[in-house]
Design a protein around this nucleic acid. Structure first.
Lengths: 239, 239
DNA sequence: GATAATGGTGCCATTTTTTGTCACCATTGA
DNA sequence: TCAATGGTGACAAAAAATGGCACCATTATC
């Protein structure tokens, strides 16, 4: 039997029986006593909490709280989870935000190294806040999640972004900007960008941005994004 | 080299180089051509999308969208993630809530069957809403995450809960109640319970509940919890 | 059409890892 | 004391992974 299947079988058996002796497990999964002991070691290394009681009447016991699950996640899914938990924390937090963080940390550790670096650099560009209750959301449009890859690429490789923008008054303008940060004020997202044509920062509400095009040829340098009330008064500033 | 490490190395190499030939990969990770081919097979089985182009100028190419990660999560961590994403969605949502859901669905599928049932039943008891801005949070205390297991047990096995409760005026009372639901108004949590002594529903703010004791002997039946404005006016009701 | 570069498969001997067996130790309750 | 239990080390046997080889199919280039 495959070693991973056997590990799963041992966990199942322990969950079912509550307490089991090594010999019972060996019988159950069809392996030798020694192998079971090696498996128990491996499972403990993997984070399962298995209590053992020596002596007559003893045995092995799996802490049900430590039952774990493995899932394969795409990078974008990990990203979405990170944002959700971070935004929730910014919104006031839940008693279990710490637990969620520890889960996410495990997920992050499992990511390939370069993806972690990318993710970190992208997350560094994110600023999460709370929307003031006065904000009028009546005209909020949907945002296309498919935009994300373009933004990620523009942010990570410092490429200029070109898009059409429709402002609060419905005026449409063409923009070529340096994407410097993302501002999240659930449920709104803003792109904070340096607009070279206007020589100033501008905030663009993501649901008002037309399909963006990454300008592969041009790069820019990062600027200090001032997130104070003067520059970022939590409203649409892209006039 | 360990087989898993080599698989990781291959994925890294493919990500770095874009397109690579089998021989180049073999050189890179220090294995034979045959082994690389077997590894590619295994990676494809694991869900990585690897395009291959035969003939001169061909090679292997990893679909960057298919990079995946596996993490082992404890059940409580899964629970915390579910709550965070659900609460975020209730608070207005993010453009990526759907992606987060798809990630969580994968995680949930990987959980052992009985744990999924428990989790569902517990989640059914959760009601997530938004706090009205008028709520005074100045006296908000910390909530002990260690309370969770007791609540989970009480909910799932329909056991009465006994605890001390300190109301908004600071009065302390003893309670023995039927836990019927949890109301989450970030950052506050409420226990919605039927209080047999008062023959009515009561809302208890979680941070005002003393260490709860599960009454193993007594069980109760579930009641319809009315979540309308009359019964749940988003304030502390446990008078 | 020939040729070289590429992905892909089957076979088998060799190397590495995993497994089983055995002897032994420590702890516990009867 | 004794029997039942968890735990460790050593070593040979069994199983799995690996490398090398021959060979096939496809493709671009000469």
């Amino acid at each position: 039997m495959n070693i991973r299947l056997r590990h799963d079988a041992i966990v199942r058996s322990l969950r079912r029986t509550g307490t089991a002796t090594i010999d019972a497990l060996a019988d159950d999964v069809g392996a030798s006593r020694r192998t079971i002991l090696r498996d128990i070691c491996a499972l403990r290394d993997q984070g399962f909490v298995i209590h053992s009681e020596p002596g007559r009447g003893g045995g092995l016991q799996l802490d049900p709280q430590s039952v774990q699950t493995t899932a394969r996640l795409a990078v974008t899914e990990v990203f979405a989870l990170l944002i959700s938990v971070a935004a929730m924390r910014a919104a006031g937090g839940l008693p279990f935000s710490d637990l969620a963080d520890s889960g996410l940390a495990k997920i992050e550790r499992a990511l390939p190294g370069d993806k972690v670096r990318d993710l970190r650099r992208f997350l560094d560009c994110l600023h999460i806040g709370q929307l003031s209750p006065q904000q009028d959301l009546s005209d909020m449009g949907p945002m296309d999640p498919a935009l994300l890859p373009a933004f990620e690429r523009a942010f990570l490789q410092r490429h200029l972004l070109r898009f059409h923008y429709r402002d609060a008054q419905g005026r449409e303008t063409k923009r070529v900007v340096e994407p410097q940060a993302m501002l999240i004020l659930p449920p709104l997202w803003y792109l904070v960008a340096w607009d070279p044509a206007r020589d100033d920062f501008r905030h663009f509400r993501m649901d008002r941005i037309g399909t963006p095009v990454v300008e592969e040829g041009a790069t820019f340098r990062r600027r200090h994004v001032p997130f104070d009330a003067d520059v970022c008064p939590y409203r649409d500033l892209a006039g």
